Computed example of a mutant assay.
Amino acid sequence: MSSEVTSNGAPAPVAVPATYTFPHDKLKRRQEVTGRTPLILVACGSFSPITYLHLRMFEMAGDYIRFNTDFEVCAGYLSPVSDAYKKVGLAPGHHRVEMCSRAIQQSSWLMVDPFETVNQNENGEPEYVPTAKVLRHFDHEINTVLGGIEGTDGVRRKARIALLAGADLVMSMGEPGLWSPTDLDVILGSYGAFIVERSGTDVDEALSTLRQYENNIWVISQVIQNDISSTKVRLFLKKDLSVRYLIPDPVVDYIEEHGLYQENQTKEPKEKGKESASGSSNAMPLKG
């Protein structure tokens, strides 16, 4: 897999703060379908804020996997990136984790793992966690710490860990120099990825440079096109436009309550229940 493994071949544990607890309350610990390999889907991203497209990706993947593969999905995880990523429009990690948590409250199988957002360096500052390391983290927590997933025959088996991402990510993987070859070998060679097509992206072109991993990459078509993005949501907020029905209502409420994405972050958050008729905030414009 990589150099970061134990003597028995299992992924080495990744150091985390003592206060961190791996979420597994919705993890299916026993399979329901005989003859299938247990699968865990992991989506890494900014989620600033999380949108309905992020959630639909999991549902599309679940349907695709059920009808086209020999896997059984046992859980889906959202893994918000560390604040060290320093992307434009990135809200503080604890806010993004909370928004994701509110967005998936009604889901029976989706969870939010704060692992990336709580990682710190020796100076107590946020530390960026590469995607390969994130996948090894899930492998360790589910297959080593929890002992894998029990099959219908009562035998415990290793769950397959796979990345769930949009086509833009796999396109970046195909660009020379953007990704470490070692990390790509871990992500696509050892684990694999389910890629959801997006309008305006040429997945075939990207895959042509990743032929060595073609058996570990599954492409999911969007039957109903959806191009909602966090960037567009932030732009709407900047223009003081409503973002209802672009993102889950609990996320809209959280953004307003905490005054997120405002140009002047010192402005008092909007009081709950004082929303305008359009559903948008009366706050100052936000950074795009």
Rank of each mutant, 00 (worst) to 15 (best):
V33R: 14
R36I: 13
L286E: 08
G279Y: 10
V219R: 07
V233N: 07
T69R: 15
K239S: 15
I255P: 00
Q31V: 11
G76W: 00
T144S: 12
I149A: 07
R234A: 04
I161F: 06
N216S: 14
I187M: 02
A277P: 07
L78T: 02
T201C: 14
T34Q: 13
D168V: 05
G45E: 00
E214N: 15
N264R: 12
C74H: 03
V223T: 08
P13H: 00
V33N: 04
K287Q: 05
L207R: 14
T21W: 05
G288V: 06
N123D: 13
H140Y: 15
W179K: 00
L164G: 05
H95K: 04
E205N: 07
G124A: 10
R102P: 03
M173C: 15
V118P: 01
P285Y: 08
A167E: 03
P23T: 11
V134H: 09
Y77D: 05
T144W: 01
I255D: 02
S221E: 13
Y261L: 00
Y254G: 04
N8R: 09
V129L: 01
R56M: 07
S3Q: 11
H94D: 06
V16L: 06
D153F: 08
P269T: 11
C100S: 05
G151E: 06
G200D: 06
D183M: 01
S280C: 09
T266W: 10
K267A: 13
H140S: 09
L286I: 05
R136K: 11
T231E: 10
A167H: 06
E257I: 12
K133I: 01
V233S: 09
G192E: 02
V16D: 03
K26P: 06
S229C: 11
R102F: 08
R234C: 04
C74R: 10
G166P: 03
C100A: 10
G189I: 08
A12E: 11
Y261Q: 03
S278H: 08
D202E: 09
E98Q: 13
L55C: 10
L78M: 10
V16H: 14
V42P: 02
R102G: 12
P80Q: 11
F236V: 01
I161V: 13
T51P: 05
G148L: 10
E175H: 11
V145M: 12
F236P: 02
K267E: 11
L260D: 12
A132V: 03
A15F: 05
A167R: 01
P17V: 00
K238S: 15
L41D: 02
T19Q: 08
P248T: 02
A132D: 05
Y85M: 01
T201V: 10
R244S: 12
G148P: 13
A167W: 09
G166R: 04
T209N: 12
D204F: 01
Y20N: 06
V145P: 09
V97A: 09
S208D: 08
T6G: 09
V112G: 07
D153G: 10
V5K: 14
R36G: 13
E59N: 05
I224Y: 08
L178I: 15
G124K: 04
L110C: 14
F194Q: 01
S3E: 10
S281E: 04
N121F: 00
G76D: 04
E4G: 00
D253H: 03
M173V: 02
S172I: 08
V155M: 13
K86I: 03
N123E: 14
S278T: 14
G89R: 12
V112W: 08
S199E: 13
S82L: 02
Y52Q: 04
